[in-house]
Amino acid sequence: MSAPVKENPVNKYLRTERMPSIWCPGCGIGTTVNCFTRALDASGFDLDKVAIVSGIGCTGRVAGYLKLDSFHTTHGRAIPFATGLQLANPDLKVVVYSGDGDLTAIGGNHLVHAARRNADMLVVCVNNFTYGMTGGQVTPTTFRPAIASTTPYGAYEETFNLPRLADSCGAVYVARWTAYHVRQLAKSMGEALNKKGFRFIEIIAPCPTLYLRRNKLGDGLDEMKFYREKSVIKHGADTREVNLDFRQEITVGKFVDRERPTLEEAMEKQMTKTLGSKYVPYQSPGKKPAWS
Protein backbone atom coordinates (compact mmCIF):
# COMPACT_ATOMS: atom_id res chain seq x y z
CA MET A 1 0.00 0.00 0.00
CA SER A 2 1.39 3.45 -0.84
CA ALA A 3 0.11 6.86 0.08
CA PRO A 4 -0.53 9.48 -2.59
CA VAL A 5 2.69 11.46 -3.12
CA LYS A 6 2.19 14.93 -1.81
CA GLU A 7 4.19 18.00 -2.67
CA ASN A 8 6.55 19.23 0.02
CA PRO A 9 4.67 22.19 1.56
CA VAL A 10 7.84 24.25 1.41
CA ASN A 11 8.06 23.93 -2.36
CA LYS A 12 5.56 26.63 -3.12
CA TYR A 13 7.92 29.10 -1.47
CA LEU A 14 11.02 27.88 -3.29
CA ARG A 15 12.49 28.27 -6.72
CA THR A 16 12.70 24.49 -6.92
CA GLU A 17 14.39 24.67 -10.30
CA ARG A 18 17.36 26.20 -8.48
CA MET A 19 17.72 23.30 -6.04
CA PRO A 20 19.93 21.85 -4.70
CA SER A 21 21.19 24.89 -2.84
CA ILE A 22 24.85 25.83 -2.60
CA TRP A 23 24.77 25.22 1.16
CA CYS A 24 27.07 22.56 2.61
CA PRO A 25 25.78 19.41 4.30
CA GLY A 26 25.01 20.28 7.90
CA CYS A 27 24.72 24.02 7.26
CA GLY A 28 21.89 25.57 9.24
CA ILE A 29 20.78 28.23 6.77
CA GLY A 30 18.36 25.92 4.96
CA THR A 31 16.74 24.98 8.24
CA THR A 32 16.07 28.64 9.00
CA VAL A 33 14.58 29.10 5.53
CA ASN A 34 12.34 26.15 6.20
CA CYS A 35 11.11 27.82 9.38
CA PHE A 36 10.62 31.08 7.50
CA THR A 37 8.38 29.42 4.92
CA ARG A 38 6.30 27.91 7.73
CA ALA A 39 5.95 31.38 9.24
CA LEU A 40 4.90 32.81 5.88
CA ASP A 41 2.42 29.98 5.50
CA ALA A 42 0.89 30.73 8.87
CA SER A 43 0.83 34.48 8.24
CA GLY A 44 -1.78 34.25 5.52
CA PHE A 45 0.00 37.08 3.68
CA ASP A 46 -0.48 37.66 -0.01
CA LEU A 47 2.93 36.36 -1.05
CA ASP A 48 2.95 38.64 -4.06
CA LYS A 49 3.34 41.48 -1.59
CA VAL A 50 6.27 40.01 0.30
CA ALA A 51 9.73 41.04 -0.88
CA ILE A 52 12.95 39.54 0.33
CA VAL A 53 16.27 41.34 0.24
CA SER A 54 19.66 39.77 0.89
CA GLY A 55 23.21 40.98 0.92
CA ILE A 56 26.20 38.88 -0.03
CA GLY A 57 27.41 35.61 1.41
CA CYS A 58 26.01 32.15 2.09
CA THR A 59 22.92 33.54 3.79
CA GLY A 60 22.80 36.19 1.08
CA ARG A 61 21.75 33.44 -1.27
CA VAL A 62 18.43 33.03 0.51
CA ALA A 63 16.81 35.67 -1.70
CA GLY A 64 17.67 33.62 -4.76
CA TYR A 65 16.00 30.50 -3.47
CA LEU A 66 12.73 31.97 -2.25
CA LYS A 67 9.95 32.30 -4.81
CA LEU A 68 9.09 35.85 -3.80
CA ASP A 69 10.08 39.16 -5.30
CA SER A 70 13.68 38.84 -4.29
CA PHE A 71 16.71 41.08 -4.38
CA HIS A 72 20.27 39.89 -4.02
CA THR A 73 21.99 43.20 -3.45
CA THR A 74 25.58 44.22 -2.68
CA HIS A 75 27.64 43.30 0.34
CA GLY A 76 26.22 44.92 3.45
CA ARG A 77 23.59 47.00 1.70
CA ALA A 78 20.47 44.90 1.96
CA ILE A 79 19.04 47.15 4.67
CA PRO A 80 19.27 50.47 2.80
CA PHE A 81 17.96 48.79 -0.36
CA ALA A 82 15.06 47.45 1.70
CA THR A 83 14.47 50.88 3.22
CA GLY A 84 14.21 52.40 -0.26
CA LEU A 85 11.99 49.59 -1.47
CA GLN A 86 9.62 49.89 1.46
CA LEU A 87 9.44 53.71 1.48
CA ALA A 88 8.77 53.77 -2.26
CA ASN A 89 6.25 50.95 -2.08
CA PRO A 90 4.71 50.84 1.39
CA ASP A 91 2.30 48.13 0.29
CA LEU A 92 5.17 45.66 0.43
CA LYS A 93 6.17 43.59 3.42
CA VAL A 94 9.93 43.65 3.31
CA VAL A 95 12.20 41.04 4.84
CA VAL A 96 15.98 41.29 4.93
CA TYR A 97 17.68 37.91 5.20
CA SER A 98 21.45 37.89 5.52
CA GLY A 99 24.42 36.77 7.55
CA ASP A 100 26.44 38.09 10.49
CA GLY A 101 29.34 39.37 8.39
CA ASP A 102 27.07 41.07 5.90
CA LEU A 103 24.68 42.69 8.36
CA THR A 104 26.93 43.49 11.30
CA ALA A 105 30.36 44.21 9.80
CA ILE A 106 30.19 45.76 6.35
CA GLY A 107 26.53 46.58 6.86
CA GLY A 108 26.73 47.50 10.55
CA ASN A 109 26.12 51.19 10.04
CA HIS A 110 22.91 50.52 8.14
CA LEU A 111 21.74 48.07 10.79
CA VAL A 112 22.03 50.56 13.62
CA HIS A 113 20.46 53.41 11.69
CA ALA A 114 17.57 51.40 10.31
CA ALA A 115 16.83 50.26 13.87
CA ARG A 116 17.13 53.83 15.15
CA ARG A 117 14.71 55.21 12.59
CA ASN A 118 12.45 52.15 12.94
CA ALA A 119 12.44 51.39 9.24
CA ASP A 120 9.66 48.92 8.54
CA MET A 121 11.34 45.58 7.89
CA LEU A 122 12.03 42.22 9.44
CA VAL A 123 15.75 41.51 9.56
CA VAL A 124 16.72 37.86 9.87
CA CYS A 125 20.39 37.54 10.75
CA VAL A 126 21.80 34.04 10.43
CA ASN A 127 24.82 34.12 12.71
CA ASN A 128 27.28 31.33 11.98
CA PHE A 129 30.25 33.24 13.40
CA THR A 130 32.15 33.35 10.15
CA TYR A 131 32.34 34.51 6.55
CA GLY A 132 31.48 31.20 4.93
CA MET A 133 31.52 32.03 1.28
CA THR A 134 34.95 33.61 1.35
CA GLY A 135 36.51 30.77 3.30
CA GLY A 136 36.00 31.27 7.01
CA GLN A 137 37.33 34.65 8.07
CA VAL A 138 36.74 36.31 11.44
CA THR A 139 33.52 38.32 11.84
CA PRO A 140 32.23 40.70 14.52
CA THR A 141 30.61 37.69 16.19
CA THR A 142 33.52 35.23 16.17
CA PHE A 143 34.27 34.28 19.76
CA ARG A 144 37.66 34.51 21.38
CA PRO A 145 39.73 32.39 20.92
CA ALA A 146 38.14 30.70 17.89
CA ILE A 147 40.31 30.04 14.89
CA ALA A 148 39.37 31.72 11.64
CA SER A 149 41.43 31.90 8.48
CA THR A 150 42.32 35.50 9.31
CA THR A 151 42.81 34.79 13.02
CA PRO A 152 44.93 31.64 12.63
CA TYR A 153 46.25 32.04 16.19
CA GLY A 154 42.83 32.62 17.69
CA ALA A 155 40.35 35.51 17.65
CA TYR A 156 41.04 38.26 20.16
CA GLU A 157 38.43 40.96 19.56
CA GLU A 158 35.33 41.62 21.63
CA THR A 159 32.19 40.40 19.87
CA PHE A 160 28.87 42.04 19.25
CA ASN A 161 25.93 41.04 21.41
CA LEU A 162 23.49 41.42 18.53
CA PRO A 163 20.19 41.47 20.48
CA ARG A 164 21.62 44.20 22.71
CA LEU A 165 22.82 46.14 19.70
CA ALA A 166 19.41 45.97 18.01
CA ASP A 167 17.59 46.70 21.27
CA SER A 168 19.69 49.71 22.18
CA CYS A 169 19.23 51.16 18.71
CA GLY A 170 15.47 50.94 19.02
CA ALA A 171 14.31 47.74 17.33
CA VAL A 172 10.68 46.99 18.24
CA TYR A 173 11.10 43.21 18.20
CA VAL A 174 14.26 41.37 19.12
CA ALA A 175 14.63 37.62 19.45
CA ARG A 176 17.37 35.05 19.31
CA TRP A 177 17.01 31.41 18.46
CA THR A 178 19.26 28.68 17.19
CA ALA A 179 18.73 26.47 14.18
CA TYR A 180 17.81 23.76 16.68
CA HIS A 181 14.73 25.71 17.86
CA VAL A 182 12.71 25.21 14.71
CA ARG A 183 9.22 25.48 16.17
CA GLN A 184 10.01 28.47 18.34
CA LEU A 185 11.81 30.11 15.46
CA ALA A 186 8.94 29.61 13.05
CA LYS A 187 6.55 31.05 15.64
CA SER A 188 8.85 33.96 16.36
CA MET A 189 9.24 34.74 12.67
CA GLY A 190 5.47 34.68 12.35
CA GLU A 191 5.07 37.10 15.24
CA ALA A 192 7.71 39.38 13.81
CA LEU A 193 6.19 39.28 10.33
CA ASN A 194 2.97 40.57 11.80
CA LYS A 195 4.53 43.56 13.50
CA LYS A 196 5.47 46.87 11.94
CA GLY A 197 8.78 48.61 12.38
CA PHE A 198 12.30 47.34 12.69
CA ARG A 199 12.28 43.73 13.82
CA PHE A 200 15.43 41.71 14.38
CA ILE A 201 15.84 37.96 14.78
CA GLU A 202 19.27 36.49 15.32
CA ILE A 203 19.60 32.80 14.52
CA ILE A 204 22.65 30.91 15.70
CA ALA A 205 23.43 28.34 13.03
CA PRO A 206 26.17 25.84 12.27
CA CYS A 207 28.80 26.41 9.60
CA PRO A 208 30.32 22.92 9.55
CA THR A 209 32.79 23.46 6.75
CA LEU A 210 34.58 26.56 7.93
CA TYR A 211 33.79 27.42 11.51
CA LEU A 212 33.23 24.05 13.13
CA ARG A 213 35.83 22.03 11.29
CA ARG A 214 38.52 24.61 11.74
CA ASN A 215 37.77 24.72 15.46
CA LYS A 216 37.52 20.93 15.77
CA LEU A 217 33.93 21.21 16.98
CA GLY A 218 32.51 18.37 14.95
CA ASP A 219 29.95 18.58 12.17
CA GLY A 220 26.63 20.37 11.77
CA LEU A 221 24.75 17.73 13.72
CA ASP A 222 27.19 17.95 16.64
CA GLU A 223 26.63 21.69 16.74
CA MET A 224 22.86 21.29 16.66
CA LYS A 225 23.13 18.89 19.61
CA PHE A 226 25.30 21.47 21.35
CA TYR A 227 22.54 24.05 20.88
CA ARG A 228 20.04 21.62 22.36
CA GLU A 229 22.25 21.06 25.36
CA LYS A 230 23.43 24.62 25.98
CA SER A 231 20.41 26.78 25.14
CA VAL A 232 18.28 28.34 27.81
CA ILE A 233 15.02 30.02 26.90
CA LYS A 234 14.59 33.33 28.74
CA HIS A 235 11.79 35.36 27.23
CA GLY A 236 11.96 38.99 28.15
CA ALA A 237 15.58 38.72 29.28
CA ASP A 238 17.47 41.99 29.58
CA THR A 239 19.52 42.07 26.40
CA ARG A 240 22.53 43.22 28.42
CA GLU A 241 22.47 39.77 29.97
CA VAL A 242 22.37 37.69 26.80
CA ASN A 243 25.95 37.99 25.63
CA LEU A 244 27.35 34.84 24.08
CA ASP A 245 30.74 33.31 24.66
CA PHE A 246 32.77 30.48 23.24
CA ARG A 247 31.09 27.15 24.05
CA GLN A 248 29.03 28.77 26.83
CA GLU A 249 25.32 28.87 27.52
CA ILE A 250 23.18 30.31 24.74
CA THR A 251 20.35 32.51 25.95
CA VAL A 252 17.49 32.37 23.47
CA GLY A 253 13.97 33.72 23.41
CA LYS A 254 12.02 36.83 22.62
CA PHE A 255 13.74 39.70 24.39
CA VAL A 256 11.99 42.80 23.09
CA ASP A 257 8.45 43.38 21.85
CA ARG A 258 7.32 47.00 21.95
CA GLU A 259 5.58 49.64 19.87
CA ARG A 260 7.14 52.72 18.36
CA PRO A 261 6.13 54.80 15.33
CA THR A 262 7.75 53.51 12.17
CA LEU A 263 9.90 55.72 10.00
CA GLU A 264 7.03 56.12 7.59
CA GLU A 265 4.50 56.94 10.31
CA ALA A 266 6.84 59.48 11.90
CA MET A 267 7.51 61.08 8.52
CA GLU A 268 3.81 61.34 7.68
CA LYS A 269 2.93 62.70 11.10
CA GLN A 270 5.58 65.39 11.04
CA MET A 271 4.75 66.51 7.49
CA THR A 272 1.04 66.66 8.28
CA LYS A 273 1.70 68.60 11.47
CA THR A 274 3.93 71.16 9.77
CA LEU A 275 2.39 71.42 6.33
CA GLY A 276 -1.27 70.73 7.03
CA SER A 277 -3.35 70.76 3.88
CA LYS A 278 -0.33 71.64 1.75
CA TYR A 279 1.09 68.20 2.40
CA VAL A 280 0.69 65.87 -0.58
CA PRO A 281 1.14 62.33 0.75
CA TYR A 282 3.12 59.86 -1.27
CA GLN A 283 1.02 57.67 -3.57
CA SER A 284 2.23 54.10 -3.32
CA PRO A 285 2.80 52.50 -6.73
CA GLY A 286 1.79 49.29 -4.97
CA LYS A 287 -1.90 50.21 -4.99
CA LYS A 288 -2.41 48.67 -8.41
CA PRO A 289 -0.31 46.44 -10.63
CA ALA A 290 1.56 48.06 -13.51
CA TRP A 291 -0.21 45.83 -16.04
CA SER A 292 -3.69 46.94 -14.99
Binding site: F71, R77, P80, F81, T83, L85, L87, H110, G286
Partner: peptide, 20 residues
Protein backbone atom coordinates in the same frame (compact mmCIF):
# COMPACT_ATOMS: atom_id res chain seq x y z
CA UNK B 1 15.18 60.03 2.92
CA UNK B 2 18.56 61.12 4.16
CA UNK B 3 20.75 58.08 4.79
CA UNK B 4 23.67 57.37 7.08
CA UNK B 5 26.15 57.47 4.22
CA UNK B 6 26.47 57.45 0.45
CA UNK B 7 26.75 53.68 0.43
CA UNK B 8 23.21 53.50 1.76
CA UNK B 9 21.84 56.37 -0.30
CA UNK B 10 23.23 54.98 -3.54
CA UNK B 11 21.41 51.68 -3.19
CA UNK B 12 18.28 52.93 -1.44
CA UNK B 13 17.26 54.70 -4.63
CA UNK B 14 17.58 51.41 -6.49
CA UNK B 15 15.23 49.82 -3.96
CA UNK B 16 12.90 52.74 -4.63
CA UNK B 17 13.00 52.08 -8.37
CA UNK B 18 12.13 48.39 -7.96
CA UNK B 19 9.33 49.52 -5.68
CA UNK B 20 7.93 51.46 -8.63
Amino acid sequence: QQFEDELGASIALLGGVWGG
